[in-house]
Design a protein around this nucleic acid. Structure first.
Lengths: 231, 231
DNA sequence: ACCTGAACACCGTTCAAGT
DNA sequence: ACCTGAACACCGTTCAAGT
């Protein structure tokens, strides 16, 4: 279990927003934090966590491996950045107090899940990496919404962690489990072959089930029912 | 995203239960699947997932690295076996039909969580590895209990996955997050330093919260409320 | 049946050096 | 300020060989 690094990032250059004089170099843009992160996300999408390598990343960017280390602390840093970059929330500005807190929360969590499913490696990275700014923003927005809806301060943290855990769990399961139909069929086959040991699972065809979206929605509703402020 | 191997294990020797004639070799017992798995669990408990290495495992067992490969397919196999070994369920024989299905389910899931928290690496391994016999047994028992309690067949799989996801999510979060007080304090510090960006999180001290057991129980109750068969 | 060492094709990262 | 190659201390696993 490696400790999560949540501290200051690096003493390296921060993008200032001001671009250098005018070298709009057209062919091989120079290395940058952003380009590295974008390439990492591409690589992760294409090949998965195990296949992300500093060397492969450098190859894809047309640079030497060690050049990456000017922009980035180490491989864990790349993971942190890739994860957070994929979790940016593009929701309504959310300035007005809506009437429908429940719909809002459900929408936020569905969006969270959808973002992670678009990048199936991200869900399993979530619990192991630092909480980046985009993740914190989502948590903040969720907190604010629940708080405004009337959830008592004393219940707020438990409510947030319950929802976080549920969304994360559902998404990880879906991403790792719903991989391929053949895999699931093979797993169910194996259960069947084991004969009488798992009759209920065999009968309900648990491992073949694929209504993940419905199951997610249903469980979420139950949680929200429970979390709803009494009045 | 590596596919989960759920197929037949290996063409290697199965422990027959019959021990070889009489070589109760006292000092250096010979290698075996069981000894390898036990050593792997020790190593994982002591150092975590990243530190488990075939070489270190062999060292601890006083053998050459390649000797392991006679008993075990590869490193993933070691992970599968270690994970499942830690999830054995020692519950009541469960032959009689209890009245209190809800207490039973809660107990089973609390036990599941406790088993995983005893080996903090196990929760994060759960979604990435194959479903071993002990895991399947727990799923089977859960299915049977819910089914007997009157949960409709059409709702059974969704109920099971909701509970599975919740327990897994809660345990992963707890295991990776509740690591050290300093880490959590540092994370909360960081949020504070970021000033106005996360006022609600800052106020509720979300990252310092440590009533994990209470939060787990509460969320679980909500889910069970929702899943309870209507009558 | 069980164990072994050498070798291969990789890793992440340090360091000293280039421009 | 930014990039580089060589080198170090590791990995998991194949293979051909030992007993």
């Amino acid at each position: 279990m490696t400790a999560k690094r949540s501290g200051a990032r690096s003493k390296r250059p921060q993008r200032t927003g001001i671009s250098p004089p005018m070298p709009e170099a057209p062919s091989e843009p120079s290395l940058s934090r952003q380009r590295i992160v974008a390439a990492a996300v591409e690589l992760l999408d294409a090949k998965g966590i195990e296949e992300l390598t500093m060397r492969r990343l450098a190859d894809r960017l047309g640079s030497g491996v060690m050049s990456l280390y000017w922009h980035v602390d180490n491989k864990d840093d790349v993971f942190d950045l890739a994860l957070d970059s994929v979790l940016e929330y593009r929701g309504a500005p959310q300035m007005v107090q809506s009437q429908d807190w429940r719909g809002e929360v459900a929408h936020m969590l569905e969006d969270w899940r959808a973002s992670m499913l678009r990048h199936p490696w991200s869900a399993s990275l979530l619990p192991r990496r630092a909480l980046g700014p985009n993740i914190l923003s989502r948590l903040e927005l969720l907190s604010r919404t629940l708080s405004r809806a009337g959830v008592a301060d004393a219940d707020l943290n438990a409510a947030i962690w319950s929802l976080w855990n549920y969304v994360m769990g559902a998404t990880i399961t879906r991403a790792s489990f719903g991989l391929s139909d053949e895999d699931r069929a093979a797993a169910q086959q194996r259960v069947a072959r084991l004969g009488e040991h798992y009759p209920t699972i065999e009968r309900s065809r648990l491992l073949l089930d694929d209504d993940w979206d419905g199951a997610f929605r249903k469980g979420l509703d139950f949680l929200l029912d429970g979390l709803a402020p009494r009045q």
